Simulated assay, not measured.
Amino acid sequence: MTNKEVKLNYVMTSCARFPLLLQAMKSSLLVSAHNLDCLFVISSDGEEIKAEHVRLPQIQGIALSDDQQRLSLAAYHQVWDYQRITAQPELPTSVESTQGRDAVFYPCGSMTTGYLNTHDLAWGREKLYMVNTRFNCIASPVYGKSFEVVWKPPFISALVAEDRCHLNGLALKHGEPAYVSYFSATDHRFGWRDGSSFDGAIMRISDEQAVIQGVCLPHSPRIHRNYLYFCESGTGRLWRCPEAQLPASKSDLELVAELNGFTRGLRMVGDMAFVGLSKVRQAKDGSSRHIDMPLLENQQDLRSGICVIDLRDGSEIACLTFSGDLNQIYDVEIVFGCNNPRILDLNSEELSDLFHL
């Protein structure tokens, strides 16, 4: 399926089960593609998938509150806040694009943080948490400030904008930060670029212990049913380990699935995992690093898209494949209770006639 509305070279193709799965779940997907500056909204009528997009510069992290009423997006030097609204027929609005939609999100504000290279976002019980990769810490956006520091790894000696360890992933537990992923426990400017791709680790925040070490470019730690899941992006693998057995050596981990893509972006629901897949890209500065990454051995066979994995046996339930320019996925989120959502663009003229009282 080619989305002709987006003036970009990309194609989406799905297996027969993917649109059926979304319809049966009465859900839609949000997928961030930072290289295209796009948030894709992927829905289904049961027979075909439909893709719309919202343009946001260098978008990475996506966060939905537990009640699915607030949507936050990390985009370059800002964090954007959207509110979910329902139809209000008494209002004098004639926004045609919201007619027939079962969920509408409109932009209601943003906080300017400066360029933090914000990766994961997550809504906790009382605040929004963000992985402030440039300053090597977990932070929260605060009105009138660039950010408020919540926690930083014990090996980071100073709060400086040097991306020393490439802190990227965050898992919440009971609404509080619980685990983080990073590429290397280094304490100098861009130190993570210097060593092996297998210097990555998952750290438990409560006791600041690296509970899993020696993993290749980890992303997307998540807690689900008392297991810690994470993507070992450089190998295309999805791993898990019972929380009660942490810390654990890599030989103690359970391999859930091995996929032919750079695994990044993870959303679990029930017995399923929605996993983002990307191609391996060259470093933006043109340098060579992490040349020991296993995925480099079969770059031509790698794919970009979303793979749905059965957590019970690791089999593939359904897949959505991207081609063309759509080859860098960062995050994946699910909007429940809707097969036809709309996220209004920041510059949309429709906002002038959309009222929420």
Score class of each variant (00 low, 15 high):
residue 10 Y to H: 12
residue 13 T to S: 14
residue 15 C to H: 04
residue 17 R to A: 15
residue 17 R to V: 11
residue 21 L to T: 09
residue 21 L to C: 06
residue 22 L to W: 12
residue 23 Q to W: 00
residue 28 S to G: 12
residue 30 L to D: 10
residue 34 H to S: 13
residue 46 G to H: 13
residue 46 G to T: 12
residue 51 A to F: 00
residue 52 E to R: 15
residue 54 V to H: 09
residue 54 V to W: 13
residue 54 V to T: 11
residue 66 D to H: 05
residue 67 D to N: 15
residue 71 L to C: 08
residue 76 Y to C: 10
residue 77 H to L: 00
residue 79 V to A: 02
residue 86 T to F: 09
residue 89 P to G: 10
residue 91 L to M: 13
residue 94 S to Q: 12
residue 95 V to C: 11
residue 95 V to P: 01
residue 100 G to R: 12
residue 100 G to D: 06
residue 104 V to Y: 04
residue 108 C to Y: 12
residue 110 S to N: 11
residue 115 Y to D: 15
residue 115 Y to N: 15
residue 117 N to K: 05
residue 120 D to S: 13
residue 123 W to H: 15
residue 123 W to E: 08
residue 123 W to N: 11
residue 130 M to D: 06
residue 134 R to T: 11
residue 134 R to H: 08
residue 135 F to Q: 11
residue 136 N to Y: 03
residue 137 C to L: 09
residue 138 I to A: 04
residue 145 K to F: 07
residue 151 W to F: 06
residue 153 P to V: 00
residue 156 I to P: 03
residue 157 S to W: 00
residue 159 L to C: 07
residue 160 V to Q: 14
residue 162 E to D: 14
residue 165 C to V: 13
residue 168 N to E: 10
residue 173 K to L: 13
residue 173 K to W: 08
residue 182 Y to T: 02
residue 183 F to C: 04
residue 184 S to V: 02
residue 185 A to P: 09
residue 194 D to R: 05
residue 199 D to E: 15
residue 200 G to A: 06
residue 205 I to W: 10
residue 209 Q to H: 04
residue 210 A to F: 00
residue 212 I to P: 00
residue 213 Q to S: 10
residue 224 H to P: 05
residue 225 R to L: 08
residue 226 N to H: 13
residue 226 N to I: 01
residue 229 Y to E: 04
residue 231 C to V: 07
residue 235 T to V: 05
residue 236 G to P: 07
residue 237 R to S: 13
residue 237 R to M: 03
residue 241 C to F: 02
residue 242 P to A: 02
residue 250 K to G: 07
residue 250 K to D: 01
residue 251 S to P: 02
residue 252 D to H: 11
residue 254 E to Y: 07
residue 254 E to N: 04
residue 258 E to D: 11
residue 259 L to H: 05
residue 260 N to C: 09
residue 264 R to K: 12
residue 267 R to V: 03
residue 272 M to Q: 13
residue 273 A to W: 02
residue 279 K to C: 04
residue 279 K to S: 07
residue 281 R to Y: 02
residue 287 S to H: 05
residue 289 R to A: 02
residue 290 H to E: 03
residue 290 H to T: 00
residue 292 D to I: 09
residue 293 M to T: 09
residue 294 P to I: 03
residue 294 P to A: 05
residue 295 L to P: 03
residue 301 D to T: 09
residue 305 G to H: 12
residue 306 I to Y: 05
residue 311 L to P: 01
residue 314 G to E: 00
residue 320 L to Y: 10
residue 325 D to Y: 01
residue 327 N to Q: 12
residue 327 N to F: 05
residue 327 N to R: 13
residue 328 Q to K: 12
residue 329 I to L: 15
residue 330 Y to F: 15
residue 330 Y to P: 07
residue 332 V to H: 11
residue 332 V to P: 14
residue 341 P to K: 07
residue 342 R to P: 00
residue 344 L to G: 07
residue 347 N to A: 15
residue 350 E to S: 09
residue 354 L to G: 00
residue 356 H to F: 03
